[in-house]
Design a protein around this nucleic acid. Sequence first.
DNA 1: CCGAGTCGGTTCGGTGAATGAACCGATGCT
DNA 2: AGCATCGGTTCATTCACCGAACCGACTCGG
Lengths: 174, 174
Amino acid sequence: MALGKDYGQQDCALARTLELVGERWTLLIVRDAFYGVRRYSDFLAHLDIPRAVLSSRLQTLVEAGVLDKRRYQESPPREEYVLTERGVDLWPIIRSMARWGEKHVQNGVACRIFRHHGCGGTVDPTGICALCAALVAPDATEVAPGPGANLLRREDAVTLAMRRPHRLLEPLLP
Amino acid sequence: MALGKDYGQQDCALARTLELVGERWTLLIVRDAFYGVRRYSDFLAHLDIPRAVLSSRLQTLVEAGVLDKRRYQESPPREEYVLTERGVDLWPIIRSMARWGEKHVQNGVACRIFRHHGCGGTVDPTGICALCAALVAPDATEVAPGPGANLLRREDAVTLAMRRPHRLLEPLLP
DNA sequence: CCGAGTCGGTTCGGTGAATGAACCGATGCT
DNA sequence: AGCATCGGTTCATTCACCGAACCGACTCGG
């Protein structure tokens, strides 16, 4: 969500969650983090988000303990943003929203598909592996382009790197 | 979310979903609809939302096929907003967000608990009944106040009616 | 018949967040 | 020295949100 991000005496848990991830752009940033984006400039290139908004959201997410900001090299100083355990717990939210969009906006056409790493079974809407029936954690989830992937004609480096099947949370670029 | 609700060539399903339910207040309206709120004035009383914003959101949700606006009495004309099948499919999103807030913002204290109607088993975070292991649909879910319910000191009629255990989607007020 | 109340909105002025473009400092590359 | 990259900040403009007031259709009580 956006403006005045508090929901007052609103009903507990859902409202509290929305105060954090309900702001515009926030969930897309978190999704990219799952897909392996870690650097400011990569979020910027992939999301077409105003720089000031990206700075603000990253800072909010770090303060909320969803992302960890770490300097991965000195000289020149370079930062990266990585999901914390608390951030990884947001996966069911991302998953369920993507699922709803697939079903009701895209007529069932997925632009990404998820497989259980090692097992190879596809991961169903509830997050269960169709082959071994286990609940698949994000770091055991492999993402690959689905039938609807070509709907977007983006050609930036991040988009290209994302087309390559890879595991969630693994860094996309060196 | 708010401003300029489109996310351009952003990655398919999640972005499309956010364009609808990502606007400020929208998910809280949908949540109230699950809890049985149906009338304009009841949403207004329970959410402390500006009237103009409520009108706008309801209209958007109706246009998106998430809510159905129906006149339930002529003279005086009275309208009610009821979740469609497409709207009911949003339940996993609400559930997963509420779950995250419970765990990470409220330290595990739930202000509402959910039971499998008829069976009586509690519904776990993934939506499975702890007793019969079935995936519990919203209309088979009974909601009751949890340990953290008294955190909010609201006293409007809608809040009071909501304290009474009842099934999701059933009208809260006559 | 008059006045007050309810419901479901619309209208309007002020505020403040989002936007996009420009700028900036530290560093590396040639 | 000159140019490029990274990770931002600053700034003017735009536009959605906010809250209060207003409104039309109707009912109810006296």
